[in-house]
């Protein structure tokens, strides 16, 4: 082999590393820019008033996003209420009945649900819940977010239970423990941290969702604790205020953005910590 061709091959090798390295580093730029914007603009608006007051009318400065914080909390709580138990049970079902045809179909449905556009879930819940109640409501928003949480919880539950050795289940069954108690008292507690991770990730997935709430929770400029009334949520507030013409509302929206990103990162961090343990 000629020396020069070897040189070319080495040069190509380094060039390649250079290119993929550069592309990877380039991606950091928008990330840094986004966070710079969030922290400088958002940081300015976050203070006690921001966290404890409701928004003022357009043009007036001050005010906060307390109504949206309450709304997001309530919506996530409503969503969790049904989707956590249903998600865990379904996860147990598809991991326990691996060979049945129904469970194969359920697994496909979970994949479909995970790929379903969030806006489609929004219009579906509008048709199923909002229209019959003829009212936008927190409860419909909770349903929409709950549907979005399901696939994440189901998948992580299934994956976690798949890692639990068969022998543990056998140990319990051999002690004369009924199957249902074996699942509830041995299998699920053993996979607890994995399932918890799934729940936290699913919450972090929906905490920033806007599209499914547009026609369900709808948004509300005032504070409400009622689950039958339209309610605000942090991402909805960001959308409405960001697209408004008022400088003061843009300020609030930046603050809300920083808050929601912080919340999501915190949830992910906790989820990671839980997995490590």
């Amino acid at each position: 082999m000629k020396k020069s061709s070897l040189k070319i091959r080495h040069a190509k090798n380094y060039l390649f590393i250079g290119i993929i390295g550069l592309c990877s580093i380039l991606l950091m730029i928008p990330l840094i820019l986004i966070f710079y914007q969030l922290i400088t603009l958002g940081g300015k608006s976050i203070n006690l008033t921001f966290l404890t007051q409701i928004p003022k009318s357009p043009g007036e400065s001050g005010g906060g996003i307390y109504n949206a914080i309450v709304g997001t909390t309530l919506l996530v709580a409503l969503a969790s209420l049904v989707s956590i138990p249903l998600g865990i049970l379904t996860g147990v079902y598809i991991s326990e009945y691996q060979n049945s045809r129904l469970s194969g179909a359920v697994r496909t449905c979970v994949d479909i649900l995970q790929g379903t556009p969030s806006i489609v879930i929004g219009i579906i819940v509008y048709t199923w819940v909002v229209r019959p109640m003829s009212q936008f409501s927190a409860i419909s928003g909770g349903v929409a977010l709950g549907i979005m949480m399901l696939p994440v919880i189901i998948k992580t539950t299934e994956e976690t239970l798949g890692l639990i050795p068969m022998s543990l289940k056998e140990a319990s069954l051999a002690l004369g423990v009924p199957y249902y108690k074996t699942i509830l008292k041995v299998v699920i507690p053993t996979g607890f941290s994995g399932i918890l991770t799934g729940i936290l990730l699913s919450i972090s997935r929906v905490a920033g969702e806007t599209a499914p709430l547009l026609f369900t929770a709808f948004g509300n400029a005032f504070l409400t604790y009622s689950i039958f009334k339209p309610i605000s949520a942090i991402p909805l507030l960001i959308f409405n205020y960001a697209t408004s013409p008022y400088e003061e509302w843009h300020q609030l929206a930046w603050g809300a953005s920083l808050l929601v990103v912080g919340m999501i990162l915190l949830l992910n961090l906790v989820a990671k910590g839980v997995t490590k343990r």
Partner: peptide
């Protein structure tokens, strides 16, 4: 992970203003 965690509405917000 950070990029994946940012909600879509914030991408839109940033896109609109920056």
């Amino acid at each position: 992970d950070l990029l994946a965690g940012i909600p879509s509405v914030i991408y839109g917000f940033w896109g609109l203003f920056v």
